[in-house]
Simulated scan of single mutants.
Amino acid sequence: MRNDPPGDADHRLAARLAALRADRGWSLDDLAARSAVSRSTLSRLERAELSPTAAQLGRLCAAYGRTMSRLLAEVEAEPPGLLRAAEQPVWQDPEAGFSRRSVSPPHPGLRAELVEGTLLPGATVRYDGPPVPGLEQHLWVLAGTLRLTLDDGPQHLAPGDCLRFRLHGASEFHCPGPEPVRYLVAVVLP
Rank of each mutant, 00 (worst) to 15 (best):
M1G: 15
M1W: 00
R2I: 13
R2A: 14
N3C: 07
N3V: 10
D4V: 08
P5N: 11
G7P: 12
H11V: 15
H11N: 13
H11C: 15
A14K: 01
L20T: 13
L20G: 12
R21A: 10
R24K: 08
R24T: 13
R24Q: 12
W26Q: 11
S27P: 10
D29Y: 01
D30T: 10
A33T: 11
R34T: 15
A36P: 01
S38T: 09
S40T: 14
T41P: 02
L42Y: 04
S43G: 15
S43N: 13
E49A: 07
S51W: 04
P52V: 04
T53A: 05
A55I: 03
Q56V: 12
L57C: 03
G58S: 12
A62G: 09
Y64W: 05
R66M: 15
M68G: 12
S69K: 01
S69G: 14
L71G: 04
L72T: 07
A73P: 02
A73D: 14
V75K: 01
A77Y: 00
P79R: 05
P79V: 14
P80K: 06
P80M: 04
G81F: 11
L82K: 02
L82P: 00
L83W: 07
A85Q: 10
A85T: 12
E87C: 01
P89W: 03
E95F: 02
E95C: 03
A96W: 09
A96T: 15
F98L: 05
R101Y: 09
V103R: 02
P106K: 00
H107T: 08
P108D: 13
L110Y: 06
A112S: 13
A112Q: 12
E113T: 07
E116A: 11
L120W: 05
A123K: 10
T124M: 06
R126I: 15
Y127I: 09
Y127K: 04
D128A: 14
D128Q: 08
G129C: 02
V132H: 00
P133A: 02
P133W: 00
L135Y: 00
E136Y: 07
H138F: 10
H138T: 14
W140M: 14
L142S: 10
L142V: 14
L142E: 13
A143D: 15
G144L: 04
T145R: 11
T145P: 03
T145H: 10
L146Q: 00
L146C: 07
R147M: 08
L148D: 05
L148N: 02
L148S: 02
L150E: 09
L150W: 08
D151H: 09
D152G: 08
G153M: 00
P154R: 02
Q155M: 06
A158W: 05
P159Q: 09
P159Y: 05
P159C: 07
D161W: 03
F165I: 06
R166G: 10
L167C: 11
L167H: 08
L167Y: 01
H168P: 12
H168A: 14
E172W: 00
F173K: 05
E179A: 08
P180A: 13
Y183W: 08
Y183T: 09
L184D: 03
L184I: 03
V185K: 01
A186S: 13
V187I: 11
V188Y: 05
P190V: 02
